[in-house]
Simulated scan of single mutants.
Amino acid sequence: MDAVREAALRNISGPVQTHRVRIVIHGKSWDVLILSVNEYVGWVRVHDGIAIWRSGSIITGMADTGPVAAGGQLSGFFLLSALAGEWYMRVRPLTGAAEFPDVDTIGEFIASTENQAPPAPAPAPRPAATAPAAPAALVSAPSQPAPAPVEFNPYFHTAERHPPASGFSEADLNGVPLVTVHPATIPAVVAGFLLLGAIAGAQYSFYEVVRWGVTAMAIWSAVVAGGLKQTAWAVAFSATAVLFNPFVPVYLTRETWVPLDTAALVLFISAGVKLRASRPATAKDGPQRITG
């Protein structure tokens, strides 16, 4: 337990309290190491020589679905160290929160979570002695409970941030697990097939389809690039749309079109890979926390 505590303190940045207590779980007394950051709690207990890590929120009553176990206290030391750092990233404290939960509250939460029973309601936060009283409208309880947060999972989510995807703002990306999307993938695939056919030497009638299809996909990609504030990409696709447009056709020899088709193909494929956007993770993007 001492090794686990040292590893956690080295890997968790910010204010954290540690407690080493014995808590009755499933009728047995367990030696538990607790790390609390505001209302968020992470805890480690040893069961049959296996160090088991879990985390959760006292306020929402949420805990992660499955414990992550290392091979033992010593052999799994490096894994517990990594888990400590990852836990703090995915359970950030609420902005402005300053109160730490007391040990009795933490113990009750852990025991109820381990026993698959709903935790007792969290006590109301104690206001600072010098803080002015808040207006009644600001302290009244909400009529509906807040939705359960999505737990950060490194296999499904990412901490890498890109411009917001369509329908989201920068504010929507703050303080939540993110998913990276490639909004130019569909136009890249459609235009890619058309351009490959043109490069391979399809019949002349097929080139009319190429003009319409590539122009439409280039406009789509230019709009996507503009939304992501990628000016160079937007200009490149706008020029591609002008080159392939069927309204005022540009007539060139096949020997000239082949390198132009190849360049357009490379442009679409590159955009499909490199144009990336971020959106908040949802319930379809990986395991979630569950109550109790």
Rank of each mutant, 00 (worst) to 15 (best):
P163Y: 00
R5N: 11
V16P: 04
E255L: 09
P187W: 02
Q17W: 03
A134K: 09
A146F: 10
V32H: 09
V179P: 05
P259W: 01
P249W: 03
I199L: 06
T262F: 03
S169M: 08
I110E: 03
F247K: 05
L83K: 04
V242H: 13
L260Y: 06
A222I: 03
P177M: 05
P164M: 04
G201L: 02
V21Q: 08
N115T: 14
G85L: 02
F156G: 04
S169D: 14
A225G: 09
D102Q: 03
T256N: 06
F237E: 01
V181C: 09
V24T: 15
V266F: 10
I23D: 05
V4S: 13
Q230P: 05
A241S: 11
A264G: 10
N11G: 05
I186Y: 12
V176Y: 10
V250G: 03
T185P: 02
A148S: 14
T291W: 09
A141P: 12
R5M: 09
V214G: 01
G14H: 03
V209A: 13
N174W: 07
G96D: 05
A236V: 04
R54Q: 15
A200C: 08
E6A: 15
I12Y: 01
T105Y: 00
M62K: 03
R22Q: 15
S55P: 05
V68Y: 09
Q203A: 12
